[in-house]
Design a binder for these strands. Structure first.
Length: 646
DNA sequence: CGCGGAACTTAGGATGCTATAG
DNA sequence: CTATAGCATCCTAAGTTCCGCG
């Protein structure tokens, strides 16, 4: 039965006549698999649902086991799982995201716990007792004292300005210079606290763990249309000092405490509404089923809205994720046509079209982000494709034996540097020269283009196409090609996994997913090398022993010595394997020094590619996806057979 | 049609937990 | 049994795209 169901998936996947209808169809196919039970509009969140969830978990295990091992025992729960209960019900239209939503609201940050009186703050060398409000803000600074950014002028200035707002008038008049403030006792106190926490007894740690688990069980789940779903971030962000990335003009500003009165709750009318803490009120309770969030509030640094939403394992997120990859797969079918067109557009007599075409070429070839305009002075100065400035590229007529090389050097998202030298077609090069003519370094490269114009154009080329689809498409197709190319079916499991990681790495490099080399990198590399050396020695010993055993067997010619040879042979083999495993590990780690694989794995690579690869080469999925990842990609694990190709 | 706000995805670093080496 | 490395999870900032309004 489960196989029949899978075939249904495949059939529908190939029909793409009408995109809109198709989307709806996908939704119904998908949502049905996570259905738990037939009826009832409201559950007791904290009683019955636990059991129902167990059924779901059991059924899911059942389904996987049936697919993988075909164990008869598990067929029954799996049948329940695939039963088309409520088959039609979740086929939503017009942007409706749910029909029923019930949750317990957010968990607020713990209230401020004042310092013990022996922990003092000094101003200009003299002890000064701060008001509770001013003290709280001071502790935020004290907690960051060891961090580099408390030395940065902007950080200090912003902090000081916001801190003063929280002071009493007396404090304001006394404290006039941040440099005269001594937070060191506070800082020491917090360090000691964190040491004490680490040194707690097992029992105390266990208690904390249990309490966290209790809160998770109470607040960490919601019910959306008969599914008990995990909430991603049910805890409200605690107050603190804003830490932007890169050179952020607002670093050090005070992120204020969020109260009930700031919170908008979203849930269905007929649900048990979440209760605000005693004596407080929500800002608003609304029932908007065209959005997916449960709770929102406005943050005070940028004035943007923050949301509480569901975990990636949820139906609503999984469905969206699937849709994303299906869009990318549709791009695959028409990407050559689109490429032909933008190459043609390089010759257009209209400047705006040439710019659009060159930008699209960069997005396609280099997997650059779209690059929205940003408000100057509000955020760090970073760019993407459409917002590139003249100063971000250097043109080289000839470089390192190659013609028409473009050198990119700019800060992208999260102020991560993008540096790349790329040979481009002559026509692109000539266009770039034209775009840069008579411009200042700080002028926009594409002055007739922005993301809205670009995306409008893309929409005309393919339904649902936007700039970011190219990143998804190029990432996934690269993984697929690399895996097809470099996996050797003769290899052992660790070698195959090295191949997988290398394919993953090719994508991470394409997408410029970098990380700071781990602080302990050199050391851990050395440790590994030591292990390898030891293993080599062990191997030499084992080989010597084998040799002498062989010689011994030749002389003695008895059963016992023959057996000894065999066991020594086995030992050599085993050690060789271990050595190989270590060496593979070393290679992998070295190549991974400054590259982060996680981001592409989680956000850009169609999981069905990886799952199909595992199935094809007999690799356990656990070897490439950890628990969280398997939960997020449950839809794909269920769906992809060994022959899936992106 | 442009703009700003809302909604949602993508991102790296910090922190916490656990397996394993010593 | 303890220290630590390495991985998982948490955290929330920083993007993209959508959407509605004047």
């Amino acid at each position: 039965d489960s196989h029949k169901h899978k075939d249904k998936y495949k059939d529908k996947e190939h029909k793409h006549k009408d995109h809109k209808k198709d989307k709806e169809r996908e939704k119904s196919k998908y949502s049905n698999r996570y259905d738990v039970t037939a009826d009832s509009s409201s559950f007791d969140l904290f009683g019955d649902m636990v059991q129902i969830n167990n059924v779901l978990v059991l059924a899911l295990c059942g389904a996987i086991l049936v697919a993988c091992v075909g164990m008869l025992v598990y067929i029954l729960p799996s049948l329940c799982f695939f039963m088309p209960f409520r088959w039609e019900e979740e086929r939503y239209t017009d942007g409706v995201k749910w029909k029923f939503l019930e949750h317990k609201g957010p968990v607020f940050a713990p209230p401020y716990d004042p310092l013990p009186s022996n922990v003092k703050f000094y101003y200009d060398g003299k002890h000064m007792k701060l008001s509770s409000t001013a003290e709280e803000v001071a502790t935020f600074f004290a907690k960051m004292l060891d961090h580099e950014y408390t030395t940065k002028e902007v950080f200090r200035k912003n902090f000081y300005k916001d801190w003063r707002k929280e002071m009493t008038s007396e404090e304001k008049s006394k404290i006039t210079d941040l440099n005269k403030c001594d937070f060191s006792e506070m800082s020491e106190y917090f360090k000691a606290q964190s040491e004490a926490r680490k040194a707690m007894t097992k029992e105390d740690k266990q208690k904390i763990k249990e309490e966290n688990e209790r809160i998770l069980q109470e607040y960490g789940f919601c019910i959306m249309d008969n599914h008990k779903e995990r909430i991603a971030n049910f805890r409200i962000e605690p107050p603190g000092l804003f830490r932007g990335r890169g050179d952020h003009p607002k670093m050090g500003m005070l992120k204020r405490r969020i109260r009930s009165e700031d919170i908008i709750v979203n849930c269905s009318k007929d649900s048990k509404h979440p209760k605000p803490p005693p004596g407080t009120k929500w800002k608003e309770v609304r029932h908007d089923n065209k959005v997916t969030w449960l709770v929102s509030w406005t943050e005070n640094i940028q004035g943007s809205i923050k949301y509480i939403m569901l975990n990636p394992s949820s139906r609503i997120k999984g469905e969206k994720d699937w849709q994303k990859y299906e869009t990318a797969r549709r791009l695959k079918k028409c990407v050559e046509r689109i490429r032909a067109q933008y190459r043609d557009d390089w010759k257009s007599k209209e400047m705006r079209i040439r710019q659009r075409a060159v930008a699209l070429y960069f997005i396609d070839k280099l997997a650059l982000r779209a690059g929205n305009e940003k408000e100057e002075g509000e955020t760090a100065d970073t760019v993407g494709c459409c917002s590139l400035r003249v100063e971000h590229l250097t043109l080289h007529q000839e470089m390192g034996g190659q013609e028409y090389v473009v050198e990119f050097d700019f800060l992208g998202k999260d102020s991560i540097r993008y540096y790349n030298k790329v040979p481009v077609e002559k026509r692109v090069f000539k266009n770039l020269q034209l775009f840069m003519e008579d411009k200042e370094p700080e002028d926009d490269l594409f002055d007739r283009l922005n993301t809205s114009i670009l995306n409008k154009h893309l929409q005309e080329l393919m339904d649902g196409l936007t700039a970011k689809v190219f990143r998804t498409y190029n990432a996934s197709i690269t993984l697929q090609q690399q895996l097809n190319e470099i996996t050797n079916s003769e290899d052992n499991v660790p070698a195959k996994i090295l191949s997988y990681n290398r394919a993953n790495r090719a994508v991470a490099i394409l997408c410029n997913h970098q990380r700071a080399p781990p602080k302990t990198f050199e050391k851990s590399m050395q440790n590994l090398q030591t292990k390898i050396d030891a293993k080599k020695e062990q191997l030499a010993d084992a080989k010597r022993e084998l040799k002498s055993a062989k010689a011994d067997a030749k002389v003695r010619r008895d059963e016992k010595s023959k057996k000894a040879v065999e066991s020594k042979k086995k030992a050599v083999q085993r050690i060789e394997e271990q050595l190989m495993k270590l060496e593979v590990q070393a290679t992998d780690r070295e190549e991974n020094k400054q590259i982060a694989l996680g981001t592409s794995k989680l956000n850009y690579l169609d999981p069905r590619i990886s799952i199909a690869w595992c199935k094809k080469f007999g690799i356990q999925i656990e070897k490439i996806y950890n628990k969280t990842q398997r939960e997020k990609f449950a839809w794909a694990i269920d769906m992809a057979g060994k022959d899936f190709q992106f």
